[in-house]
Write a protein that binds this DNA or RNA. Structure first.
Length: 420
RNA sequence: AGAGGGUUCGCAUAGUGGUCUAGUGCACUACCUUGGAAAGGUAGCAGGGGCGAAAGUCCCUCACGAGUUCGAAUCUCGUACCCUCUGCCA
């Protein structure tokens, strides 16, 4: 959500944003709705002021005067009710439009319609070389009894899986490794709800637009697709102290995605599943563009350092306008090399929002002048499993079918090879 | 899942139809007092929106929504959440 004043003063910026993000939103429609809302509001307020004034007079009047005064007020009551109804009506339209206003992408965001036009920012490492024919992760892991897709489908349906034995060890090792590193950097770990109410999803920007990709319960709650949702709502309706900013959190949670728009993509393996686990970095900071930018670099760097230590070949892309979410100002995707597919696959997504989310969630802080301001928010994946297992397993596969454990994970796994 | 109690300014509370422009205490801020502090005193102290250069003024918000009424923090109904007890459960 953006400030209506800002929108009114800068309709051209919104139009450019709509174009750059390849949306179909019409700002002029909102501006008309805004005029209608203000008009209705002012009409209501005038009537209400009159009603308040006359009602107060009734209280002070003598008993004889009262009945005629009350009679005179009856028609005003109806007028007020009508005016209020009108306000409700126009506000509803206004609200719906307000929720569809995109945040303005940064100047540095490249033009483009979809992820195919994302621009490579930098690359780390090189493609691994094998002196044998490398296998894909499903084959390797099934052979080593680390995963079971067949029974996964039997029990859970399409995209269902069981992770087992060394697969589980690897998953837990990754969680520990990534989490410990960020705790050392001063991030606070949280285990957060996945079962969340509607409000949290509107607040973080996953509703109303993302309804199709969410699982909904019979109690009208939803299963969140990321821990960001609950973590962001943690401070909703709060006023924070400026000296406590930035707040740096790691949210651990199971994540659920219907993958409704994914058609037949990634029908095999651990890359696209309905149910996975994620450690997510969530940051709240003061309302300052430079601070947001520098923290955005930080949360991206946090992951890069760890991927480097893991010895993975990856690149960072700057997402183009068409691949940005409604609220995102800028986004980097980190994509790790998947040898069997001969391409980079997204494992991390790092973005900042300015006050788009905090405005919806009403997260403010008192600045040095004592003024209340909406904080800025950012988030980035820390590690998502099992997706990243595909890369690790394929990159570290050996000629004999086993998997070498990356050096940094060995303390958490207690052996040098999986499958031996 | 059932029964009962609750939700008022940062915190604690008062308020049961008009005098509530929501009182009081604590906390906080400034000043007075002091060698400095404490205590004491004085003042300020909720958010959002409209109009206005400003002073100011009007509207909304007493969990949320609907209703009764000329008038609702106060009465009625619904929803959410919290607490206590019972049940079930890891």
């Amino acid at each position: 959500m953006l400030d209506i004043k800002f929108i009114r003063e800068n309709p051209d910026l919104i139009k450019e944003a709509v174009k750059k993000k390849h949306l179909s939103f019409n700002v002029d429609e909102l501006l008309v709705a805004e005029d209608r809302r203000k008009e209705a509001l002012s009409e209501f307020e005038t009537l209400r002021a009159k009603q308040n004034e006359l009602s107060d007079a009734v209280a002070k009047a003598s008993p004889e005067e009262r009945s005629s005064m009350i009679e005179a007020l009856k028609p005003i009551k109806e007028q007020v009710q009508n005016a209020e109804e009108k306000v409700r009506e126009v506000t509803k339209t206004w609200q719906t439009l307000m929720l569809a206003v995109p945040n303005i992408p940064d100047m540095s965001v490249p033009e483009g319609a979809s992820d195919e036009e994302n621009v490579e920012h930098h690359v780390f490492g090189e493609k691994p070389k094998f002196d044998f024919v490398p296998k894909d992760h499903t084959e390797i892991m099934e052979a080593l009894d680390m995963v079971d897709f067949e029974r996964g489908a039997k029990v859970s349906g399409f995209r269902g899986y069981f992770l087992k034995n060394d697969g589980v060890l690897l998953q837990f090792a990754l969680w520990q490794y990534f989490l410990n590193a960020l705790i050392k950097k001063g991030y606070s770990p949280f285990s957060v709800p996945s079962l969340v109410n509607k409000q949290t999803l509107f607040g973080s920007g996953y509703l109303p637009q993302g309804e199709d990709d969410l699982y909904k319960t019979q109690d009208d709650s939803y299963l969140a697709g990321t821990g960001e949702v609950a973590m962001m709502s943690y401070h909703s309706d709060e006023v924070l102290s400026e000296e406590d900013l930035p707040k740096k959190y790691i949210a651990f949670s199971p994540c659920f995605r219907r993958e409704a728009g994914s058609h037949g993509k990634d029908v095999k393996g651990l890359i696209r599943v309905h149910e996975f686990f994620k450690l997510e970095q969530v940051v709240l900071c003061e309302a300052n563009h430079e601070t947001s930018v520098s923290l955005h670099e930080e949360i991206t760097k946090n992951v890069e350092t760890l991927l480097q230590e893991l010895g993975l070949h990856y690149h960072v892309v700057t997402n183009c306008g068409g691949d940005l979410g409604l609220g995102q100002v800028k986004k980097y995707d980190i994509e790790v090399w998947v040898p069997s597919q001969e391409k980079f696959r997204e494992t991390h997504s790092s973005s900042y929002f300015h006050d788009f989310q905090t405005r919806r969630l009403n997260i403010r802080y008192k600045d040095k002048e004592g003024k209340l301001r909406y904080a800025h928010s950012l988030n980035n994946t820390l590690v998502a499993t099992p997706r990243i297992l595909a890369s690790i397993v394929e990159n570290y596969q050996q000629a004999d079918g086993t998997i070498m454990v990356p050096e940094v994970l060995r303390p958490y796994i207690g052996k040098d090879f999986l499958g031996k």
